[in-house]
Design a binder for these strands. Structure first.
Lengths: 338, 338
DNA sequence: ATCGTTATCGGGAACGTTCCCGGCTTGGCA
DNA sequence: TGCCAAGCCGGGAACGTTCCCGATAACGAT
């Protein structure tokens, strides 16, 4: 594991490190013959510049960090692919981390990446993150930061989100139009931005169609603690039980799909079902699941692009924007009229 | 982004960097009072040691690299979770990369991680990797290396795999016992270790049950190039078409499940179906898919454990082992007898 | 012959740490 | 009174680069 360094080359060719360094970067002030010698020797010995030494000197790493709650989630893995595509194109490496929906892990990862001198950070908050001081101070100290999907209100920077309000509105309207009236909304932690936006879309649709809102139909779920059965039991114990479900995430959609089937509730006969989800298997489920699809890959691309812009033209402090991408409702068998 | 350094502390407290350094590491030869001063000042100013400077000096990073073909694959994301669990416990960070099933990307990622001085590398080969010189030379130069799942024969180091032979054997035997005779085997690139092992299990089962092998029933698929329809057409154009499918990966299982449904082939009436897969939705598919489940999380844990052992006791050159974990056949509706 | 130019190269500081050496006070003891 | 050993601390090299200054030589111009 002892790699060859510029010093080694210098010693071997009886040159100074400065000369070797310049020869390698093809500087004009080095004799072509010397350059050739250095280049050839470097090639032969597989010289690779030490990025750590460079990072130490330049205080940057030509890499960006990504922190997502979990990668075992189609939505996030698609986003990461978009990020990688954009970063790769512009010569940056991507370091991927998971917060595992844990606040402590998130803080740990953020600090680790910052200490490792990533040139910028892309992130989607963990569902248990309430305090974002760790990010705020980093941002104030000048670390370029772009949020996507689960964004905080308190930090002013670029953000990329799906149009959650309209996605939820569309889905709810679709359910209402196919004759449902008691739509259960299974959603994420109340603190998350996506939760609020989706709830507001849901409420707006109810209002538009003159259907009264019943807060008993809204269930906030932790991703980590499993209470599917309890929630379903509570919902179906209502005097007026749900005849439709609108779920807010891949994970929730699957859990409740399974939960409903376990209690032999028929979809879509007994209840209709629509999920916010980028599951690539929605079509293959039994029955095929109606989903609100988010442009995950594109979100990643855009977020990475914004971050790299931020990184590369640091001097002028930019006007931060929030990019909102539209969602697509895919109606499948799970939400057909009864 | 200007972080406080030991030098800053030294200057502020009128001490030397050596003293500050020692005070921070609680050295015995520093006056308790001085220690207190330094510690408090460091705390107040949020001093964090610069890991890059440390890496440069110590030639290590307290982090390990993981390269998988793609993270949008339940099998790999579960493995990564296992790796992270094990690494976290022992104080190491994990850097995740995707080769995207591309040889060039794999080489690039490997070199990048090595240059960044990861202390070791965990990897599962891309399906397009044939030449592994890049890994061989790294390994010879002393970089600890552990392979999992898709392993090369040419490098002697720790390896962690599922018992692919017996998994395929079990699944094939199960299909044969439920009355199938023409079992199509849809599998990965022929070069991969997992492909060979699974094929051998498939063949062994055929032989045990006295069913002749027909090479027309085996289809090798690239992950990147999509030829599902062609393959299905070819298979069903056979004089004696398949009455069962054994697929070798998450991705293939889903594609062919969808492909079969598109051509209105009934499962399990017309063909039975079993897939190597860690899909968490297998139960929810239509029909629920029989799968051969691999202990992905555990594989990650074990692989990471072996790697860390390798890293931490470098001096003695160990005896390398290949850990083989057993798979589990989960029979569901897709492979019921006709 | 002297001088300014150009072409080519080397020295050394700096990035943030650690650590080897060496140095200065004390104070205790002979 | 003198000496040695703690106890405590600073100087500086080293890790691999880059880059700012110089430095040296040759060479044409004055």
């Amino acid at each position: 594991m002892d790699n060859i360094t510029i010093k080694d080359i210098a010693r071997a060719l009886n040159l100074s490190t400065s000369t070797v360094s310049r020869a390698l970067r093809d500087s004009y002030e080095i004799n072509p013959e010397t350059k050739r010698l250095v280049m050839e020797y470097a090639e032969e010995k597989h010289y690779r510049p030490n990025p750590i030494a460079l990072s130490l000197k330049e205080n940057r790493s030509l890499s960006i960090g990504v922190i997502v709650p979990e990668i075992a989630n189609n939505y996030f893995s698609q986003t990461i692919n978009g990020i990688e595509a954009a970063a790769y194109e512009r010569g940056y490496h991507v370091v991927i981390c998971q917060s595992q929906e844990s606040y402590e892990r998130e803080v740990d990862k953020v600090e680790h990446l910052a200490a490792r001198r990533v040139d910028g950070l892309l992130l989607s908050l963990s569902s248990n993150t309430v305090d974002i001081e760790h990010l705020k101070s980093l941002h104030e100290r000048g670390l370029p930061l772009v949020f996507f999907d689960r964004i905080p209100a308190e930090i002013d920077t670029h953000k990329v989100v799906a149009d959650n309000h309209s996605g939820a509105f569309q889905a709810t309207a679709h359910l209402l139009e196919s004759g449902r009236r008691r739509i259960a909304h299974i959603t994420s932690q109340p603190g998350l931005s996506i939760t609020k936006e989706r709830l507001s879309g849901y409420l707006a649709a109810l209002e538009e169609y003159g259907v009264p809102f019943d807060e008993n139909l809204v269930k906030y779920c932790s991703y980590t603690f499993d209470q599917v059965e309890d929630n379903l039991n509570a919902l179906f114990a209502l005097a007026d039980p749900p005849d439709a479900f609108l779920t807010a995430a891949d994970r929730l959609a699957l859990r409740y799909y399974a939960g409903l089937q376990k209690r032999n509730t028929r979809i879509p006969e007994d209840v209709a079902f629509v999920g916010f989800s980028n599951l690539n298997v929605a079509e293959l489920l039994n029955p095929p699941m109606s989903t609100i699809l988010q442009p995950a890959f594109q979100m990643g691309q855009i977020a990475a692009g914004l971050l790299l812009d931020l990184i590369e033209k640091k001097p002028k402090s930019p006007v931060f924007q929030t990019v909102q991408l539209s969602t697509e409702l895919h109606v499948r068998a799970s939400s057909l009229p009864k």
